[in-house]
């Protein structure tokens, strides 16, 4: 659906390129996670893809045609959810949505969206009186207003309580089930792990890794099984390689000891993020 080839971008006042030649593809109907530390180039890439930044080098194709060949009908197809709260503070939530809705040819009924996101009761409240979480939920509804084919989500669950984060993640997954495509940036690795079909890591303007979370875990994880058991009242841990788990020694241990836990040695996306980017996650 979106193909990026040798993308390079330099901000007008910068000497160095922020994006230094990256290639990736976002397939139709998938959730593509774009991860990286601060100032690595992920927001810049997203802004290029949503055409807020112009003057890039390389090629970007959307639906088989150069992104540059699209006029503003491109925006009929996409929904963008920014990280920061965006709304006219002196207008009610409903007035905000009604204004943006009128800018599109194809729109959806906002009532079910507002109800699902728990904002229906507060629809006539001024957006400026909303809490941060409510503003973020309003952002998400704004992104869904035009029934988009592609959603660009920048840290969508950041600042949401677990219940509302769950609702939003469910809505993202339902969007995908209906055939929608999602480009997602987030530093909440559990969300990325749960939502994304594939992820790419960008570091210093270059892509370091691109694969499914599962494959990355296999690649970066240890192919081991760790068994913890009680022996003479003490907790003992022993690690077996994958090849060893078929051996009699492994079965004997399972049968003869009081097993407490068994863990495979697969790693987490957070550990992979740290390994690939060399930067620890914060927040």
């Amino acid at each position: 659906m979106i193909k990026v080839r040798n993308l390079r971008y330099k901000y007008p006042n910068n000497r160095e390129y922020t994006i230094k030649g990256i290639d990736f593809e976002i397939r139709e109907g998938e959730i593509f996670g774009f991860l990286g530390p601060s100032a690595a180039g992920k927001s810049t890439t997203q802004k290029i893809l949503i055409r807020l930044l112009k003057g890039y080098e390389g090629e970007i194709e959307y639906n088989g045609k150069s992104l540059l060949s699209y006029r503003d009908d491109f925006y009929e197809d996409i929904g963008v959810c920014f990280e920061m709260p965006i709304s006219f503070s002196k207008l009610t939530a409903m007035e905000n949505l009604e204004f943006f809705k009128k800018l599109y040819r194809r729109t959806v009924d906002v009532e079910p969206l507002l109800k699902r996101m728990g904002l229906w009761e507060d629809r006539d409240k001024k957006a400026g009186e909303y809490s941060k979480g409510m503003k973020i939920r309003l952002n998400f509804i704004r992104a869904m207003l035009n029934n988009p084919r592609v959603l660009f989500l920048d840290e969508p669950t950041n600042g949401l309580d677990p219940v509302n984060a769950r609702i939003m993640k469910d809505m993202i997954l339902e969007f995908k089930e209906r055939g929608g495509t999602v480009f997602l940036t987030s530093h909440i690795m559990s969300d990325v792990d749960e939502l994304c079909d594939r992820v790419a890591f960008i570091v210093d303007g270059l892509l370091r890794e691109e694969d499914s979370p599962r494959n990355l875990k296999l690649k970066y994880g240890k192919r081991t099984v760790k068994v913890e058991y009680k022996e003479n009242g003490n907790l003992v841990a022993r690690e077996f390689g994958m090849a060893e788990i078929r051996t009699p020694a492994f079965f004997e241990l399972l049968q003869s000891k009081e097993i407490e836990t068994i863990h495979s040695g697969e790693t987490t996306l957070e550990d992979i993020f740290i390994q690939v980017t060399g930067v620890a996650l914060r927040g």
């Binding site: 807020l52 503003d72 925006y75 963008v80 965006i86 800018l103 599109y104 040819r105 035009n146």
Partner: peptide, 11 residues
């Protein structure tokens, strides 16, 4: 209020 961002990602 960053609303210009939202307007400019509309048609």
């Amino acid at each position: 209020e960053h609303t210009i961002n939202s307007i400019m990602v509309s048609p």
